[in-house]
Design a protein around this nucleic acid. Structure first.
Lengths: 190, 190
DNA sequence: TTGCCATGAGAACGATCGTTCTCTAGAGTA
DNA sequence: TACTCTAGAGAACGATCGTTCTCATGGCAA
Protein backbone atom coordinates (compact mmCIF):
# COMPACT_ATOMS: atom_id res chain seq x y z
CA UNK A 1 0.00 0.00 0.00
CA UNK A 2 1.23 3.48 -0.81
CA UNK A 3 1.88 5.72 2.16
CA UNK A 4 -0.39 8.59 3.14
CA UNK A 5 1.92 11.28 1.82
CA UNK A 6 2.12 9.74 -1.65
CA UNK A 7 -1.61 9.01 -1.77
CA UNK A 8 -2.36 12.54 -0.67
CA UNK A 9 -0.16 13.98 -3.38
CA UNK A 10 -1.67 11.76 -6.06
CA UNK A 11 -5.20 12.75 -5.07
CA UNK A 12 -4.44 16.47 -4.93
CA UNK A 13 -2.64 16.48 -8.27
CA UNK A 14 -5.36 14.44 -9.95
CA UNK A 15 -8.10 16.66 -8.53
CA UNK A 16 -6.17 19.74 -9.57
CA UNK A 17 -5.98 18.54 -13.17
CA UNK A 18 -9.67 17.67 -13.29
CA UNK A 19 -10.93 20.72 -11.41
CA UNK A 20 -8.88 23.12 -13.49
CA UNK A 21 -9.92 21.58 -16.80
CA UNK A 22 -13.61 20.93 -16.21
CA UNK A 23 -14.52 23.06 -13.21
CA UNK A 24 -14.91 21.91 -9.63
CA UNK A 25 -18.61 21.15 -9.49
CA UNK A 26 -18.52 19.31 -12.79
CA UNK A 27 -16.07 16.75 -11.41
CA UNK A 28 -17.41 14.03 -9.16
CA UNK A 29 -15.40 12.35 -6.44
CA UNK A 30 -15.52 9.14 -8.45
CA UNK A 31 -13.70 10.85 -11.30
CA UNK A 32 -11.03 11.94 -8.84
CA UNK A 33 -10.75 8.35 -7.64
CA UNK A 34 -10.29 7.10 -11.22
CA UNK A 35 -7.72 9.78 -12.10
CA UNK A 36 -5.75 9.39 -8.88
CA UNK A 37 -5.91 5.60 -8.65
CA UNK A 38 -6.80 5.89 -4.97
CA UNK A 39 -9.94 4.32 -3.56
CA UNK A 40 -12.84 6.47 -2.41
CA UNK A 41 -12.45 5.14 1.11
CA UNK A 42 -8.84 6.25 1.17
CA UNK A 43 -9.67 9.66 -0.27
CA UNK A 44 -12.26 10.23 2.44
CA UNK A 45 -9.81 9.13 5.10
CA UNK A 46 -7.33 11.74 3.82
CA UNK A 47 -9.90 14.51 3.19
CA UNK A 48 -13.05 14.59 5.31
CA UNK A 49 -15.10 16.13 2.50
CA UNK A 50 -14.88 17.43 -1.04
CA UNK A 51 -14.64 20.94 0.37
CA UNK A 52 -11.44 19.99 2.21
CA UNK A 53 -10.04 18.49 -0.98
CA UNK A 54 -10.82 21.71 -2.86
CA UNK A 55 -8.96 23.73 -0.26
CA UNK A 56 -5.99 21.34 -0.47
CA UNK A 57 -5.97 21.73 -4.25
CA UNK A 58 -5.99 25.52 -3.93
CA UNK A 59 -3.09 25.36 -1.49
CA UNK A 60 -1.21 23.17 -3.95
CA UNK A 61 -1.92 25.68 -6.74
CA UNK A 62 -0.62 28.44 -4.53
CA UNK A 63 2.66 26.59 -3.99
CA UNK A 64 3.06 26.18 -7.74
CA UNK A 65 2.25 29.85 -8.29
CA UNK A 66 4.70 31.00 -5.64
CA UNK A 67 7.42 28.75 -7.03
CA UNK A 68 6.85 30.02 -10.57
CA UNK A 69 6.96 33.64 -9.50
CA UNK A 70 10.09 33.02 -7.44
CA UNK A 71 11.85 31.25 -10.30
CA UNK A 72 11.00 34.09 -12.64
CA UNK A 73 12.23 36.65 -10.12
CA UNK A 74 15.50 34.81 -9.62
CA UNK A 75 16.55 35.60 -13.15
CA UNK A 76 16.07 39.32 -12.47
CA UNK A 77 18.64 41.51 -10.79
CA UNK A 78 16.78 44.57 -9.51
CA UNK A 79 13.47 44.98 -7.72
CA UNK A 80 12.11 46.74 -10.78
CA UNK A 81 13.03 43.78 -12.97
CA UNK A 82 11.57 41.35 -10.46
CA UNK A 83 8.28 43.21 -10.67
CA UNK A 84 8.26 43.00 -14.42
CA UNK A 85 9.28 39.34 -14.21
CA UNK A 86 5.81 38.63 -12.83
CA UNK A 87 4.41 39.43 -16.26
CA UNK A 88 7.03 37.31 -17.99
CA UNK A 89 5.89 34.44 -15.82
CA UNK A 90 2.30 35.14 -16.83
CA UNK A 91 3.31 35.24 -20.49
CA UNK A 92 4.77 31.76 -20.34
CA UNK A 93 1.74 30.47 -18.46
CA UNK A 94 -0.76 31.98 -20.89
CA UNK A 95 0.97 30.16 -23.73
CA UNK A 96 0.50 26.74 -22.19
CA UNK A 97 -2.10 24.87 -24.24
CA UNK A 98 -4.27 23.97 -21.27
CA UNK A 99 -4.28 27.46 -19.74
CA UNK A 100 -7.80 28.14 -18.54
CA UNK A 101 -7.43 31.24 -16.37
CA UNK A 102 -6.52 31.71 -12.74
CA UNK A 103 -7.70 28.72 -10.71
CA UNK A 104 -8.32 30.96 -7.72
CA UNK A 105 -10.53 33.37 -9.63
CA UNK A 106 -12.37 30.46 -11.22
CA UNK A 107 -12.91 28.75 -7.89
CA UNK A 108 -14.02 31.99 -6.32
CA UNK A 109 -16.61 32.61 -9.01
CA UNK A 110 -17.84 29.07 -8.80
CA UNK A 111 -17.85 28.38 -5.08
CA UNK A 112 -17.67 31.59 -3.09
CA UNK A 113 -21.44 31.61 -2.80
CA UNK A 114 -21.31 28.35 -0.90
CA UNK A 115 -17.99 27.66 0.78
CA UNK A 116 -16.46 29.98 3.33
CA UNK A 117 -13.28 27.91 3.23
CA UNK A 118 -12.84 28.54 -0.48
CA UNK A 119 -13.51 32.25 -0.05
CA UNK A 120 -10.87 32.51 2.65
CA UNK A 121 -8.26 30.43 0.82
CA UNK A 122 -8.61 32.47 -2.36
CA UNK A 123 -8.47 35.75 -0.46
CA UNK A 124 -5.34 34.60 1.35
CA UNK A 125 -3.46 33.89 -1.86
CA UNK A 126 -4.43 37.23 -3.39
CA UNK A 127 -3.34 39.01 -0.22
CA UNK A 128 -0.05 37.13 -0.24
CA UNK A 129 0.60 38.10 -3.83
CA UNK A 130 -0.27 41.71 -3.01
CA UNK A 131 2.23 41.65 -0.15
CA UNK A 132 4.90 40.23 -2.46
CA UNK A 133 4.35 43.02 -4.96
CA UNK A 134 4.27 45.63 -2.21
CA UNK A 135 7.63 44.49 -0.90
CA UNK A 136 9.21 44.73 -4.35
CA UNK A 137 7.66 48.16 -4.91
CA UNK A 138 9.16 49.30 -1.63
CA UNK A 139 12.55 47.86 -2.58
CA UNK A 140 12.36 49.63 -5.93
CA UNK A 141 11.94 52.91 -4.11
CA UNK A 142 8.49 53.60 -5.53
CA UNK A 143 5.53 54.91 -3.52
CA UNK A 144 3.36 52.26 -1.90
CA UNK A 145 0.38 53.30 -3.99
CA UNK A 146 2.01 51.66 -7.00
CA UNK A 147 1.73 48.16 -5.56
CA UNK A 148 -2.04 47.62 -5.86
CA UNK A 149 -1.91 49.06 -9.37
CA UNK A 150 0.59 46.42 -10.45
CA UNK A 151 -1.40 43.70 -8.71
CA UNK A 152 -4.56 44.82 -10.51
CA UNK A 153 -2.72 44.64 -13.82
CA UNK A 154 -1.68 41.06 -13.07
CA UNK A 155 -5.23 40.08 -12.12
CA UNK A 156 -6.71 41.71 -15.18
CA UNK A 157 -4.19 40.07 -17.47
CA UNK A 158 -5.18 36.65 -16.19
CA UNK A 159 -8.91 37.01 -16.76
CA UNK A 160 -8.39 38.78 -20.08
CA UNK A 161 -6.08 36.05 -21.34
CA UNK A 162 -8.50 33.36 -20.22
CA UNK A 163 -11.59 34.86 -21.81
CA UNK A 164 -10.11 36.26 -25.01
CA UNK A 165 -7.86 33.26 -25.39
CA UNK A 166 -4.47 34.72 -26.29
CA UNK A 167 -1.23 35.51 -24.48
CA UNK A 168 -1.17 39.18 -25.56
CA UNK A 169 -2.54 40.47 -22.25
CA UNK A 170 0.72 39.58 -20.50
CA UNK A 171 2.83 41.85 -22.69
CA UNK A 172 0.21 44.58 -22.59
CA UNK A 173 0.06 44.50 -18.80
CA UNK A 174 3.84 44.40 -18.65
CA UNK A 175 4.10 47.54 -20.77
CA UNK A 176 1.56 49.27 -18.56
CA UNK A 177 3.47 48.24 -15.44
CA UNK A 178 6.66 49.61 -16.92
CA UNK A 179 4.99 52.95 -17.66
CA UNK A 180 3.60 53.10 -14.14
CA UNK A 181 7.01 52.26 -12.68
CA UNK A 182 8.71 54.96 -14.72
CA UNK A 183 6.13 57.54 -13.72
CA UNK A 184 6.34 56.58 -10.06
CA UNK A 185 10.13 56.69 -9.93
CA UNK A 186 10.19 59.99 -11.78
CA UNK A 187 8.03 61.58 -9.10
CA UNK A 188 10.04 60.02 -6.29
CA UNK A 189 13.70 60.49 -7.12
CA UNK A 190 16.38 59.20 -4.82
CA UNK B 1 -52.23 35.16 -17.71
CA UNK B 2 -49.21 37.40 -18.13
CA UNK B 3 -47.88 37.84 -21.63
CA UNK B 4 -44.71 36.22 -22.87
CA UNK B 5 -42.64 39.43 -22.73
CA UNK B 6 -43.46 40.07 -19.09
CA UNK B 7 -42.97 36.43 -18.10
CA UNK B 8 -39.65 36.36 -19.90
CA UNK B 9 -38.48 39.47 -18.11
CA UNK B 10 -39.58 38.16 -14.72
CA UNK B 11 -37.76 34.87 -15.27
CA UNK B 12 -34.55 36.52 -16.48
CA UNK B 13 -34.48 39.02 -13.63
CA UNK B 14 -35.22 36.38 -11.02
CA UNK B 15 -32.57 34.05 -12.44
CA UNK B 16 -30.10 36.91 -12.56
CA UNK B 17 -30.60 37.67 -8.88
CA UNK B 18 -30.25 34.02 -7.87
CA UNK B 19 -27.36 33.15 -10.19
CA UNK B 20 -25.39 36.21 -9.19
CA UNK B 21 -25.88 35.67 -5.47
CA UNK B 22 -25.45 31.91 -5.19
CA UNK B 23 -23.74 30.88 -8.40
CA UNK B 24 -25.35 29.31 -11.45
CA UNK B 25 -24.95 25.62 -10.71
CA UNK B 26 -26.08 26.04 -7.12
CA UNK B 27 -29.48 27.35 -8.24
CA UNK B 28 -32.03 24.82 -9.46
CA UNK B 29 -34.72 25.58 -11.99
CA UNK B 30 -37.31 25.13 -9.25
CA UNK B 31 -35.75 27.98 -7.30
CA UNK B 32 -36.00 30.15 -10.40
CA UNK B 33 -39.67 29.19 -10.69
CA UNK B 34 -40.32 30.19 -7.07
CA UNK B 35 -38.45 33.50 -7.36
CA UNK B 36 -40.02 34.44 -10.69
CA UNK B 37 -43.54 33.25 -9.93
CA UNK B 38 -43.69 31.55 -13.32
CA UNK B 39 -44.43 27.86 -13.69
CA UNK B 40 -41.76 25.43 -14.78
CA UNK B 41 -43.78 24.57 -17.86
CA UNK B 42 -43.87 28.21 -18.86
CA UNK B 43 -40.17 28.69 -18.22
CA UNK B 44 -39.34 25.75 -20.45
CA UNK B 45 -41.64 27.10 -23.16
CA UNK B 46 -39.72 30.40 -23.04
CA UNK B 47 -36.23 28.88 -22.68
CA UNK B 48 -35.57 25.44 -24.15
CA UNK B 49 -32.98 24.62 -21.50
CA UNK B 50 -31.16 26.04 -18.50
CA UNK B 51 -28.24 26.81 -20.76
CA UNK B 52 -30.44 29.10 -22.86
CA UNK B 53 -31.68 30.82 -19.72
CA UNK B 54 -28.09 31.39 -18.58
CA UNK B 55 -27.25 33.00 -21.91
CA UNK B 56 -30.36 35.20 -21.65
CA UNK B 57 -29.30 36.27 -18.16
CA UNK B 58 -25.82 37.15 -19.41
CA UNK B 59 -27.31 39.21 -22.24
CA UNK B 60 -29.46 41.02 -19.69
CA UNK B 61 -26.39 41.70 -17.56
CA UNK B 62 -24.62 43.08 -20.57
CA UNK B 63 -27.46 45.52 -21.22
CA UNK B 64 -27.27 46.74 -17.63
CA UNK B 65 -23.48 47.07 -17.89
CA UNK B 66 -23.67 48.98 -21.17
CA UNK B 67 -26.33 51.29 -19.76
CA UNK B 68 -24.32 51.96 -16.62
CA UNK B 69 -21.17 52.73 -18.57
CA UNK B 70 -23.10 54.98 -20.95
CA UNK B 71 -24.76 56.88 -18.12
CA UNK B 72 -21.42 57.42 -16.44
CA UNK B 73 -19.86 58.58 -19.71
CA UNK B 74 -22.67 61.03 -20.33
CA UNK B 75 -21.59 63.10 -17.38
CA UNK B 76 -18.09 63.42 -18.85
CA UNK B 77 -17.15 65.97 -21.48
CA UNK B 78 -13.97 64.70 -23.10
CA UNK B 79 -12.90 61.28 -24.29
CA UNK B 80 -10.28 61.21 -21.58
CA UNK B 81 -12.92 61.86 -18.92
CA UNK B 82 -15.20 59.25 -20.43
CA UNK B 83 -12.41 56.70 -20.10
CA UNK B 84 -11.92 57.59 -16.46
CA UNK B 85 -15.69 57.53 -15.93
CA UNK B 86 -15.52 53.76 -16.43
CA UNK B 87 -13.72 53.53 -13.10
CA UNK B 88 -16.19 55.87 -11.42
CA UNK B 89 -18.92 53.50 -12.56
CA UNK B 90 -16.97 50.60 -11.11
CA UNK B 91 -16.50 52.48 -7.85
CA UNK B 92 -20.23 52.91 -7.39
CA UNK B 93 -20.86 49.30 -8.29
CA UNK B 94 -18.22 47.94 -5.89
CA UNK B 95 -19.92 49.79 -3.06
CA UNK B 96 -23.26 48.07 -3.58
CA UNK B 97 -23.83 45.68 -0.68
CA UNK B 98 -24.55 42.68 -2.88
CA UNK B 99 -21.57 43.18 -5.20
CA UNK B 100 -20.08 39.79 -5.88
CA UNK B 101 -17.72 40.40 -8.78
CA UNK B 102 -18.23 40.44 -12.51
CA UNK B 103 -21.02 38.07 -13.47
CA UNK B 104 -19.30 37.32 -16.75
CA UNK B 105 -16.04 36.34 -15.14
CA UNK B 106 -17.88 34.28 -12.55
CA UNK B 107 -19.93 32.51 -15.20
CA UNK B 108 -16.84 31.91 -17.27
CA UNK B 109 -14.97 30.32 -14.40
CA UNK B 110 -17.95 28.19 -13.48
CA UNK B 111 -19.27 27.09 -16.85
CA UNK B 112 -16.70 27.59 -19.57
CA UNK B 113 -15.59 24.00 -19.16
CA UNK B 114 -19.03 22.81 -20.19
CA UNK B 115 -21.01 25.32 -22.20
CA UNK B 116 -19.78 26.70 -25.49
CA UNK B 117 -22.69 29.17 -25.47
CA UNK B 118 -21.53 30.67 -22.19
CA UNK B 119 -17.94 30.87 -23.39
CA UNK B 120 -19.01 32.73 -26.52
CA UNK B 121 -21.41 35.11 -24.75
CA UNK B 122 -18.80 36.10 -22.17
CA UNK B 123 -16.16 36.60 -24.82
CA UNK B 124 -18.52 38.78 -26.84
CA UNK B 125 -19.15 41.15 -23.98
CA UNK B 126 -15.46 41.49 -23.16
CA UNK B 127 -14.71 42.16 -26.83
CA UNK B 128 -17.48 44.77 -26.95
CA UNK B 129 -16.09 46.52 -23.89
CA UNK B 130 -12.63 46.41 -25.42
CA UNK B 131 -13.97 48.01 -28.58
CA UNK B 132 -15.69 50.72 -26.53
CA UNK B 133 -12.45 51.55 -24.74
CA UNK B 134 -10.50 51.45 -28.00
CA UNK B 135 -12.83 53.99 -29.59
CA UNK B 136 -12.45 56.38 -26.65
CA UNK B 137 -8.68 55.96 -26.68
CA UNK B 138 -8.67 56.84 -30.37
CA UNK B 139 -10.89 59.87 -29.72
CA UNK B 140 -8.57 60.96 -26.94
CA UNK B 141 -5.70 60.97 -29.42
CA UNK B 142 -3.73 58.29 -27.60
CA UNK B 143 -1.99 55.37 -29.30
CA UNK B 144 -4.08 52.25 -29.77
CA UNK B 145 -1.80 50.24 -27.49
CA UNK B 146 -3.27 52.11 -24.52
CA UNK B 147 -6.73 50.59 -24.97
CA UNK B 148 -6.02 46.99 -23.85
CA UNK B 149 -4.06 48.37 -20.91
CA UNK B 150 -7.09 50.29 -19.67
CA UNK B 151 -9.35 47.30 -20.27
CA UNK B 152 -7.00 45.09 -18.27
CA UNK B 153 -7.11 47.59 -15.41
CA UNK B 154 -10.92 47.46 -15.43
CA UNK B 155 -10.92 43.64 -15.42
CA UNK B 156 -8.38 43.45 -12.65
CA UNK B 157 -10.26 45.96 -10.53
CA UNK B 158 -13.39 43.84 -10.71
CA UNK B 159 -11.79 40.60 -9.56
CA UNK B 160 -9.69 42.37 -6.96
CA UNK B 161 -12.71 44.13 -5.50
CA UNK B 162 -14.70 40.90 -5.45
CA UNK B 163 -12.05 38.81 -3.74
CA UNK B 164 -10.60 41.35 -1.32
CA UNK B 165 -14.02 42.78 -0.62
CA UNK B 166 -13.55 46.54 -0.76
CA UNK B 167 -14.11 49.31 -3.29
CA UNK B 168 -10.52 50.57 -3.19
CA UNK B 169 -9.51 48.80 -6.39
CA UNK B 170 -11.66 51.16 -8.45
CA UNK B 171 -9.78 54.27 -7.33
CA UNK B 172 -6.44 52.50 -7.61
CA UNK B 173 -7.18 51.40 -11.17
CA UNK B 174 -8.45 54.86 -11.99
CA UNK B 175 -5.21 56.45 -10.81
CA UNK B 176 -3.23 53.96 -12.86
CA UNK B 177 -5.35 54.70 -15.93
CA UNK B 178 -4.77 58.39 -15.46
CA UNK B 179 -1.02 57.89 -15.27
CA UNK B 180 -1.09 55.74 -18.40
CA UNK B 181 -3.20 58.34 -20.21
CA UNK B 182 -0.82 61.14 -19.26
CA UNK B 183 2.20 59.15 -20.35
CA UNK B 184 0.56 58.19 -23.65
CA UNK B 185 -0.56 61.71 -24.48
CA UNK B 186 2.84 63.10 -23.56
CA UNK B 187 4.50 60.83 -26.10
CA UNK B 188 1.88 61.59 -28.76
CA UNK B 189 1.31 65.35 -28.80
CA UNK B 190 -1.18 66.96 -31.14
C1' DT C 1 -1.99 -23.29 8.31
C1' DT C 2 -5.47 -20.64 10.72
C1' DG C 3 -7.55 -16.60 12.31
C1' DC C 4 -7.64 -11.55 12.05
C1' DC C 5 -7.59 -7.22 10.46
C1' DA C 6 -7.14 -3.58 7.09
C1' DT C 7 -7.85 -2.51 2.44
C1' DG C 8 -9.86 -1.65 -2.10
C1' DA C 9 -13.65 -2.20 -5.32
C1' DG C 10 -17.77 -0.84 -5.99
C1' DA C 11 -22.73 -1.20 -4.57
C1' DA C 12 -25.89 1.46 -1.99
C1' DC C 13 -28.14 5.54 -0.12
C1' DG C 14 -30.42 9.76 0.16
C1' DA C 15 -30.50 14.13 -1.89
C1' DT C 16 -30.85 17.08 -5.75
C1' DC C 17 -30.66 18.20 -10.41
C1' DG C 18 -32.76 19.29 -15.29
C1' DT C 19 -36.57 18.06 -17.67
C1' DT C 20 -41.09 16.01 -18.74
C1' DC C 21 -45.66 14.39 -17.65
C1' DT C 22 -50.14 14.17 -15.32
C1' DC C 23 -53.98 16.04 -13.60
C1' DT C 24 -56.98 19.52 -12.33
C1' DA C 25 -59.19 23.97 -12.48
C1' DG C 26 -60.83 27.61 -14.91
C1' DA C 27 -61.61 30.74 -18.96
C1' DG C 28 -63.71 31.14 -23.35
C1' DT C 29 -67.26 29.80 -26.80
C1' DA C 30 -71.50 28.12 -28.86
C1' DT D 1 -74.99 24.86 -19.63
C1' DA D 2 -71.76 21.78 -21.85
C1' DC D 3 -67.59 21.34 -24.22
C1' DT D 4 -62.84 22.46 -25.28
C1' DC D 5 -58.59 24.03 -24.55
C1' DT D 6 -54.86 25.98 -21.92
C1' DA D 7 -51.94 26.73 -18.21
C1' DG D 8 -50.30 26.01 -13.57
C1' DA D 9 -49.03 23.01 -9.67
C1' DG D 10 -46.35 19.70 -8.63
C1' DA D 11 -45.42 14.64 -9.04
C1' DA D 12 -42.45 11.79 -11.59
C1' DC D 13 -38.27 10.29 -14.01
C1' DG D 14 -33.69 9.21 -14.89
C1' DA D 15 -29.24 10.80 -13.99
C1' DT D 16 -25.66 12.22 -10.98
C1' DC D 17 -23.80 13.85 -6.87
C1' DG D 18 -21.28 13.39 -2.11
C1' DT D 19 -20.85 10.14 1.19
C1' DT D 20 -21.20 5.64 3.52
C1' DC D 21 -21.42 0.72 3.73
C1' DT D 22 -20.66 -4.14 2.39
C1' DC D 23 -17.97 -7.71 1.33
C1' DA D 24 -14.35 -10.32 -0.71
C1' DT D 25 -9.26 -10.41 -0.66
C1' DG D 26 -4.78 -10.63 0.81
C1' DG D 27 -0.98 -9.76 4.01
C1' DC D 28 0.52 -10.85 8.68
C1' DA D 29 0.94 -12.78 13.50
C1' DA D 30 1.01 -17.03 15.99
Amino acid sequence: MIDDTTARRQVVEAADRLFYTRGVQAVGMDAVRAEAGVSLKRIYSLFPSKDDLIVAVLRHRRQMWDAGIAASAERAATAREKLLAVFDFLDGWFREPDFRGCAFINAYGELSGGSENVRRTVREQKEAFGAYVAELVRAAGAPASLAPQIAILAEGAQTTAAILGGPEAAAQARDAAETLLDAALEKTPL
